[in-house]
Design a protein around this nucleic acid. Structure first.
Lengths: 238, 238
DNA sequence: TGCCTGGATATTGGATCCAATCTATCGATG
DNA sequence: CATCGATAGATTGGATCCAATATCCAGGCA
């Protein structure tokens, strides 16, 4: 049953998506790619909140295409566990939960140290400089969306030299998925300053070339955020 | 005219797919699910070889459906990196390469120990018995397809109690992807008996409740296969 | 003779149309 | 008055149809 009153708020606020839409209408060769990218960004940034019903007709109208590219995009997102299909009842944005958060954290805690260990020996001083710059930008950032983006770029900068495209894609995918949760926490609790300390510690270990310490720092960083978030989600009973 | 001089061998041999098709036509609620499952199995089992062009019309005819479910299925498989789209040139089964194999092995070597570590404390004697039975079946198996299936079930049995659905799905997905490569090696080199020793060692460590040893055994097992395969693929220059 | 150009063909990408089915409202009945 | 059932509406799943584009082959030209 939908939330009692408020029958169907048509949770798709075209407003939130319009920014994504307008930005890069021409950037993609096919409409399907465009719709897929826009919807993924919409889900990850929270413009499409968890549980929101995704009506094909509505989305098609919002994107100015027919239902078909929307359907194909939804299938791709289903394969990425970002949307769920219910037979003849349509698709909804995948729900978030404490269990799912723990799941994603476990995956991150497995993938990211592996990527870092492969990448670390090949990182250059330019990479370190970029990573440090990104930490600095995070200090000044207040918008959750930009913060997530900076955090993701910081992490991926350190992993970038791993030379394993699939591993990196998987890591980035789950880093982005974690963003959904971190944004949630960010909005409720505000920015946790210890995170920045962890970023500095991680970068320092990388600069020192200490792979074990760096990997430990990454895992610690991931699990610390997870602990914080689990407690928060647990309290809300969600 | 479709046949013409048969310039393109139409690498899709409906013969190979028919087994998959006939087996469970009724099992799926939607045609898209059915096509997606059948094609995924076809790719992973090698019935659809790497590089094979996937003509929508042809697949639709083979499955007895229209092009639309095929298109949606192809999009899902694209998201799983099993097929590649070339604009206006169609989709092909994703190529295999030494680099990709190393990529998948790196992912497995990261995910599977994590899953095992979570699962190990909760494994029951029944689980161990099933795992041992699967090893036994592998001894007698000669068909590469069944062998891959048994190997996958053996591994997943040990991870099953991790209680992390996404982590397990990801692990199984990459275990299946690795199967594509192992089948390749299997056909060329025959079965490598040391693999069974590794399976026994892994199971023994699990039974002893020694998480560190078990994880080390898994990683060793994965990397040993990878080393063998990389050498083989490297020789062929693929 | 070799290369470039142009048209024919095949195949995909996208739109529209139809059928199946789930939801919801409204009415009948115990 | 509550509960159950039927009918109407909405929405998805699938099929067919049209447009856009890449490939292929033939023919002309340097």
């Amino acid at each position: 049953m939908p939330p009692a009153s408020d029958a169907r708020p048509s949770a798709l606020n075209a407003m939130a998506l319009s920014a994504v839409i307008e930005r890069n209408r021409r950037q993609f060769r096919t409409a399907t790619e465009f719709v897929e990218a826009a919807m993924r960004e919409g889900i990850l940034t929270g413009a499409l909140p968890a549980g929101a019903p995704l009506r094909q007709e509505e989305l098609a109208a919002a994107f100015g295409v027919s239902r078909m590219p929307v359907r194909e995009a939804l299938r791709q997102l289903e394969a990425r566990a970002l949307v769920e299909f219910h037979p003849h009842r349509g698709a909804v944005v995948a729900e978030i939960s404490a269990g799912d958060s723990a799941d994603i954290s476990a995956i991150r805690a497995a993938l990211e140290p592996a990527a870092l260990r492969l990448s670390l020996p090949r990182l250059t001083t330019d990479d370190f400089a970029l990573a440090e710059e990104l930490i600095g930008e995070m200090d000044a950032e207040t918008d959750p969306g930009r913060m997530g983006e900076l955090n993701r770029r910081f992490h991926m900068t350190l992993y970038a030299r791993a030379g394993r495209p699939r591993l990196l894609a998987l890591a980035e995918q789950h880093l982005a998925a974690a963003d959904r949760y971190l944004r949630f926490q960010f909005a409720a609790l505000g920015y946790h300053p210890r995170s920045q300390d962890e970023h500095h510690a991680l970068l320092a270990a990388c600069r020192a070339g200490n792979a074990d310490a760096a990997c430990a720092a990454v895992v610690n960083h991931i699990l610390a955020a997870e602990t914080l978030l689990t407690a928060f989600l647990g309290e809300r009973g969600s």
